[in-house]
Computed example of a mutant assay.
Amino acid sequence: MPRHTVAKIDLDALRHNYRLARDRAGDAIAMAVIKADGYGHGIRTVARALAADTDCFAVACLEEAQAIREEGLPHTVVLLEGMHAAEDVATCCQLGLEPVIHSHHQLDWLAAGPAAPQCWVKVNSGMNRLGFAPEDLKEAMARLASAGCPVRGFMTHFAAADEPDSPATAEQTRCFQAAVAPWPEAQLSVGNSAAHFRPGQPLFDWSRPGIMLYGASPLPDRNGPELGLQPVMSLESELIAVRTLRPGDAVGYGQTWVAERPTPMGIVAIGYGDGYPRHAGTGTPAWVNGRRVSLIGRVSMDMLAVDLSEAPDARPGDRVELWGAHVSVDEVARQAGTIGYELLTGVTARVPRLYHQSGRNA
Rank of each mutant, 00 (worst) to 15 (best):
Q230S: 14
A250C: 12
M141N: 01
V89I: 08
L50Y: 01
H279K: 11
P199G: 11
Y355V: 08
P134K: 02
D12G: 08
V123M: 09
A90I: 09
M31Q: 08
I267L: 10
I101E: 03
P264R: 03
D313P: 15
E70M: 09
Q177S: 11
A58W: 02
G290E: 06
D23Q: 13
G281C: 10
M141L: 05
H4F: 11
G271S: 07
I240C: 14
S309L: 11
V78H: 06
M303Q: 15
Q66I: 13
P2N: 08
S294G: 11
E64N: 11
G82L: 05
L130Q: 13
N289R: 13
V299W: 00
T244S: 15
L344R: 09
A280L: 10
P352T: 02
M31S: 12
C61K: 10
Y355Q: 07
A28Q: 03
A111W: 05
H75Y: 05
K35W: 02
D37G: 10
G215H: 01
E321H: 08
V306W: 00
I34V: 06
V151W: 00
L73W: 01
I9N: 00
R3V: 12
S193K: 08
P312I: 07
I296C: 15
M155I: 13
Q357R: 14
I101K: 05
R152S: 14
P114L: 15
F197M: 11
E342Y: 06
